[in-house]
Write a protein that binds this DNA or RNA. Sequence first.
RNA 1: GGCCUCAUCGUCUAAUGGUUAGGACAUAUCCCUUUCACGGAUAAAAUACGGGUUCGAUUCCCGUUGGGGCUACCA
Length: 488
Amino acid sequence: MIRTRFAPSPTGYLHVGGLRTALYSYLFAKKNKGKFLLRIEDTDRERYVADGVANILKSLYWACVVPDEGVILDKEEITQKGKNGPYVQSQRLDIYKEHAEKLLADGHAYYCFCTPERLTQLREQQTAKKMPTGYDGHCLSVNPEEAKKRAKSGERCVVRLKMPKSGETVFNDMIRGEVRFKNELVDDQVLMKSDGYPTYHFAVVVDDHLMEITHIIRGEEWISSVPKHLQIYKYFGWEVPEMAHLPLLLNPDKSKLSKRQGDVAVEDYMKKGYLPEALVNFVAFLGWNPGTEKEMYTLDELVADFDFSKVGKTGAVFNVDKLNWFNKQYLKNLSNKDLVKIATPWLAEAGIDIDNKIIEGAVGLERERIEVLSELPEAIKFVFNLPDYNAGLLVWKKSTADEVKNILPKLAEFMNTISVRDWNKEKLEEKIGEWVGQNGYSTGSVLWPMRAALSGQEKSPGPFEIAEVLGKDAVLERINLAIGKLSN
RNA sequence: GGCCUCAUCGUCUAAUGGUUAGGACAUAUCCCUUUCACGGAUAAAAUACGGGUUCGAUUCCCGUUGGGGCUACCA
């Protein structure tokens, strides 16, 4: 049974790159009828953010990358326990300690009493000499029994991995193929910090093994620490999971996607009014594609078609234009009712009454004109409050003020004869079209002022659509207002 | 600096020895049209460079260049 996991560190928010990693892990597990688990890697107490976990979970739920049953999550609480849970590293300290002691007893790890100052100095010296940096094995010479005593007595120390100084570590990455490292260049990694917490490198191995993870899917930034991890697996005699290191997401200038150059947090996109389906679809295609020309994908369709053999090796620029396009596609497919529902937070915040009887019609007018939901309130404002405008707006570029003055009152008169029963955009278009023809007017000379009078804007939806949404009374009122403006 | 890694239009990518190198986003033009948006059409736009291997290289090998990652008691 395939088991994958997503293991975020609660340092504040879910990065879009993290979303993609979680998504691929989820897709792969789902596709193979396996399990997708979540683990919280909160071993860095200095960077710990109080509601970091809740934030990340919120983003994951929003994106619908929901965990399977048997996972540690229940709503936004970490309550359930999976195999060898809980999957929160700060709650597993005894487990790491126990495993570190085993390594120590077997001579595969050693206590290190070096001060941070000494380590910094060492690194500086190595850098100055243009030597590879790394621990010099200074504490390797301390007698293990004595070291144990010193550690027990409370002397400040860490536990280091005893890395072989010869040979090679070779492994097969699902995306990159064979990768090999010379052992001599691999550092004696700190396994247990002096505060009693494990480092990432130690915890990840212990936990992945205990959680029976079969496939490790994570970002490329981890690939160079794989040899350390493999050595730990070897010392414990554990089976090594398959690994897939995903290419990074990049800024437009090809550097690693950073906050400096745009939004990187999933919640940023949430707040701007991107639909989760759009973000997921877009992010899934950053580094993967089905090999066909289909590019609109639901989560279920992604599950069906996802395959690591089609995941690329190159970093992908996070291209917001393309994301906007995806968002528009999904926006277009929403019913007016659903659009009101999901846009409610933005509408309410802008003071728009979502219970207004024409709200659905109003959002329908702008649905194909906006890219993100946060643009919606501004876009539909004219429906509820006619903006102030100059009479000049009513004159079509190919027409004249006199012509408008002549036509508009007649149009109002004619529209007044149209019954409320026929007040829909199709009938209005038909009837007004006939009227325009009969009177020998040009279409633009009638429709432009009509639209301008109804919207008060240079750019807007078409006049018949607006008229339908507004209703007969409001339409006549707005046209009469325009006539008033012209006579001044 | 060392180690690892990557390289097709501006961007996301398809094509794993034989294609006029395909699609999408973005851009431009045109059509539709009262404006905007939608929709439709068209255009411009790529195999980083240099060597091999081969009848033939985007594709395989080597090198160069360039990018990225790692090089913490952070993940």
